[in-house]
Simulated assay, not measured.
Amino acid sequence: MEITCIENAAVLHAEKDMNIFRDERVIPSLKERELTYLPHCNYFELQDDIQPYMRKVVTMWMLEVCEEQKCEDAVLPLAVNFMDRFLSVCVIKRQQLQLLGATCLLIASKLRSANRLGIELLCTYTDNSVSYEHIFSWELLVLSKLQWNLCAITGYDYVDQIIERCPWGNESSLLRRHSNTLVSICYTGNDDEIAFLTGGA
């Protein structure tokens, strides 16, 4: 008997439930729940060793990792959400920021990706400046500081809702792809790229 593997490398998505897109309560509910998962303060006032440009550098690195590893679109926004919430409750040193970013990518990929990012892979992306043991121990630290509240609502969760409600939403197959790209870039805080993509000055 011959056994043939016919698995496809492409990511498979569930069928759409059109009842969800017709229900007017969904978007207000998303907006209400999103408030629960936002940082509680401007953490740059709490952090004495981290500046906004450092966050931008780390989130751009996180975006590059996600792009190279072809992660699902939901992974980056969720990882950045975890990082921002963690920084609003726990003071760290600048040398630990990439470690935090790698740990948040690990957790988000476990939740939102069919193929999670491995710890060894993430260590490689840091040029081995972060060890397996560091990420392994920080995973529990991050989870505890977030009080295990991991089902955050991010900008990614609004994309399908908005596209399906627009009469022209399904006219272009690129619309969803471009929308998800814009969401990812917004989470990095890269103002120049956002302006370019939206046609701003």
Rank of each mutant, 00 (worst) to 15 (best):
R85V: 06
L100H: 04
S131P: 11
G101L: 10
L174E: 13
S184R: 13
S172K: 13
N180E: 06
V183T: 14
L143E: 12
C66M: 02
S179L: 05
L121P: 00
S113N: 12
S129R: 05
I163E: 04
G118R: 02
G169K: 02
V89Y: 14
I119N: 05
N190I: 05
W138T: 06
C71W: 01
L100Q: 03
S129N: 15
L111A: 08
I194V: 15
A114Q: 01
E120C: 03
T154P: 11
G101Y: 01
E171Y: 09
N81A: 07
C104V: 00
E64Q: 14
L100D: 00
E139A: 00
G118K: 02
S184P: 04
C66E: 07
N149D: 06
I163P: 00
N170P: 00
C71E: 05
Q161W: 15
T103N: 04
T124E: 08
L117M: 09
C66P: 01
V183N: 10
Q96A: 08
V57W: 00
P167W: 12
E171R: 15
L87W: 01
S173A: 14
S172D: 13
L175C: 11
Q96Y: 01
E193A: 15
A102S: 04
A108V: 01
T188G: 14
N190F: 11
Q161F: 12
R85S: 03
D191S: 11
S137T: 08
I185R: 13
L111Q: 02
E68T: 03
D84C: 03
Y132V: 08
E64G: 05
T154C: 11
E120H: 10
W61S: 04
C186K: 14
R55E: 06
L146P: 06
E67G: 02
